[in-house]
Design a protein around this nucleic acid. Structure first.
Length: 670
DNA sequence: CCGCCTCGAGTTCT
DNA sequence: CTCGAGGCGG
């Protein structure tokens, strides 16, 4: 290949790559496969190596691999990057609107609504259509030169179409998607590095890497929201037109931007996203409203370093800081010691939070959470409150590191933490905490389903010594029950009736109810089918157990150990004596209607709870999965479905609404 | 041996 | 809903 041919092919490839890059990273609708794209990149790299005279900084191969710098240079913003005034309530939004309406002498004017991304503001500067400089906002007047780092973001165009102003500055927000943020933190956790508290910190940290090769590995993205400096070229009369123009230049804009007619529509827009923000692929901490017409913007001007023509209306915070007063320990059914945070009560997004999950010891150490720390607490949507991490800068030095007790806080027995496992466990099988949890599990809905025995009664029964293990439930008598708190004849009768009922539960439920470690509802089902009775199951050796599907050495060992334990054999004896199901029911004459079909349920159903629906499916021979996969046959969708619906659509899984599902249960169609 | 897919277990607040 | 871990396929 001679020089001329090479030059021609290089230009061609760059055009091609830029086009497909834009399709993929900006428009989210690729036309070619990743492999084909990589082929183009490879070919271009080869040519550029062979003909280095044609290598230019705006070549798509130059996004990665610039050498690290010692420190960042300074970039002066020709037009300051101002921060926005904030509104925290409807009243404050109203006040903003009223003030500018007064200044303008009219109250109906278009507004542009945008999401306030949880990221960091940057400027991209183009000279004669070529990307030359990228800068952080800094203090608004001077920022840091992060040109090489921003270049690694694939949705940043490196060159613009002909006809753009000779010097052109686009402004936007660099951010991490929720997924990207999570993945980044997961990777850091695995590597034992400190975690980022939120996507903004993560984005800022990534963009301010001295080594652009590190930045290139972070899944950063950018939404452009405006123009800074622009010498020559087009002028626009509204902000919306400016946004359209930016889009036409190849910049990536937030698809949720919207042109609104008045304040009412702005309030609706806000309300909508307060409710829907969980569903967004990125984190937003509010919405921004901007006066659309540029002439009105100019008349309103700036005041106190903030433009009067825009306002950031913040969402209710999902994070708050409070003091971690102590770390408590719960002992679970399987003896696991589960630490939880005891917090100085704090309002997070309208809910008073006093406790929060702290999954395990490693997690506490990884996040370096200490008792007495001021911590960030987060409650996203319906999700359980969790401690994100400490605010290390507020430490006084009096904070105490958490140490997992070596004795069970409930019974005082030895605690072990097997090598390589995340959980510490109490070794005492008859630890009162474990027995209590086991009773709760035994009577719970998915297990023996004894209505009337709940947390309260279970505790009372144990305390009064009426039961010592789950087998004793079947020897309870009316007179004894009536003595207990809030328990009259009527309630006692009901409880006894429910206990009687529970004797009829199928074998699989009984196996599940026993609470054998690693044996949940699915595995119990398999064991019941495979062994047919408790007697055969209890006599099975590890080898025999492992012939059943999904049973490996760990589960097999756990089952054998369970039945070897004398106390467990005694419990089974009691259940047998009471007449609880010990055999799989005789093979049914005809196959159940839903045999072999796997269901997944999402959202709220009207006719019954999700667990009830799942039980019904199992009774009819179907199985229930917890997430949608290739194997799933049907997704049952109730109100307010979660991400499972998206996944089902992706996989083309058959989707049933509640009505169709009920019809199916009644056997109307298959 | 590693990565993917499921299952099991535990959590908070209204 | 999320995390950890068991099972199994590539």
């Amino acid at each position: 290949m001679n020089e001329n041919e090479a030059k021609k092919r290089i230009d061609e490839l760059r055009k091609l790559i830029n086009y497909h890059n834009h399709r993929y990273y900006v428009l989210d609708s690729p036309e070619i496969s990743d492999a084909e794209y990589d082929e183009f990149i490879k070919e271009l790299q080869h040519l550029e190596e062979e003909f280095p005279q044609f290598l230019t900084p705006d070549s798509p191969t130059q996004r990665v691999g610039a050498a690290p710098v010692e420190a960042f240079g300074v970039v002066e913003h020709q037009i300051p990057m101002l921060s926005l005034g904030k509104a925290f309530s409807q009243e404050e939004l109203l006040a903003w609107h009223k003030r500018i309406s007064g200044l303008l002498g009219e109250s109906e004017f278009d507004l542009v609504a945008e999401h306030k991304m949880d990221g960091l503001a940057v400027a991209l500067i183009y000279q004669d259509g070529k990307y030359v400089t990228g800068a952080t906002r800094g203090d608004g007047f001077r920022g840091e030169d992060i040109t090489q780092n921003l270049k690694t973001i694939k949705s940043v165009p490196l060159s613009l179409p002909k006809g753009v102003p000779s010097r052109f500055e686009a402004r936007g927000e660099v951010f991490l998607s929720k997924k990207g943020f999570k993945k980044l933190n997961d990777d850091r956790a695995k590597a034992g590095q400190p975690l980022f508290a939120n996507p903004r910190n993560a984005a800022a940290g990534s963009v301010r890497q001295l080594d652009p090769r590190i930045t290139a590995q972070r899944p950063l993205d950018i939404y452009i929201y405006g123009v800074g400096q622009a010498e020559g070229g087009k002028t626009f009369t509204t902000h919306w037109e400016t946004l359209e123009y930016l889009k036409s230049l190849g910049f990536k804009l937030n698809p949720q931007n919207k042109l609104l007619k008045n304040l009412q529509e702005a309030e609706n827009y806000y309300q909508h996203w307060v409710e829907e923000r969980e569903r967004l692929p990125y984190e937003a901490d509010g919405v921004v409203f901007k006066v659309n017409r540029h002439d009105l913007q100019e008349r309103l001007g700036n005041v106190g370093g903030e433009p009067r023509w825009a306002v950031a209306y913040k969402f209710p915070a999902t994070q708050a800081t409070t003091v971690l007063e102590d770390i408590g320990i719960n002992v679970g059914r399987t003896g696991t010691l589960n630490p939880f945070a005891i917090l100085k009560p704090v309002n997070v997004g309208g809910v008073i939070v006093k406790r929060a999950a702290l999954h395990n010891e490693d997690d506490i150490r990884r996040k370096d959470i200490r008792i007495g720390d001021t911590v960030i607490v987060q409650r996203a949507g319906d999700v359980i409150p969790e401690v994100v991490g400490p605010v290390a800068s507020l430490r006084t030095g009096k904070e105490k590191r958490f140490v997992m007790p070596t004795k069970c806080p409930v019974c005082g027995s030895e605690v072990t933490k097997p090598e390589g496992e995340a959980m510490s466990r109490c070794t005492n099988m008859s630890c009162p905490a474990q027995i209590f949890e086991l009773v709760k599990h035994f009577v719970s809905r998915g297990a023996m389903d004894i209505e009337g025995i709940g947390e309260k009664l279970a505790e009372a029964l144990l305390k009064a010594g009426l039961i010592k293990d789950v087998g004793d439930i079947y020897t309870l008598e009316e007179e004894k029950l009536i003595g207990l708190e809030r328990m009259g004849k009527k309630s006692a009768d009901n409880v006894l009736k429910a206990i009687e009922e529970s004797k009829k539960r199928p074998l699989s439920r009984v196996i599940f109810a026993l609470g054998i470690r690693h044996v949940g509802s699915e595995t119990a089902e398999i064991l019941a089918k495979h062994f047919g009775s408790i007697d055969r199951l209890s006599q099975a050796t590890e080898e025999e157990l492992m012939t059943a599907p999904t049973i490996g050495p760990t589960i097999a060992e756990s089952i054998v150990a369970f039945f070897r334990q004398g106390s467990n054999r005694k419990v089974i004896g009691k259940l047998k004596k009471a007449g609880v199901t010990m055999q799989e029911k005789a093979a049914r004459p005809h196959a159940l209607p839903l045999t072999g079909k796997e269901f997944v349920v999402t959202g709220k159903l009207d006719s019954f709870t999700r667990t009830e629906a799942e039980t019904r499916i199992r009774e009819l021979g179907g199985s229930v999965g917890s997430s949608v996969s290739k194997k799933t046959d049907f997704l049952v969708v109730g109100a307010d479905p979660g991400s499972k619906l998206d996944r089902a659509r992706q996989l083309g899984t058959k989707i049933l609404d509640e009505k169709q599902f009920l019809d199916m249960l009644e056997g109307k169609k298959k």
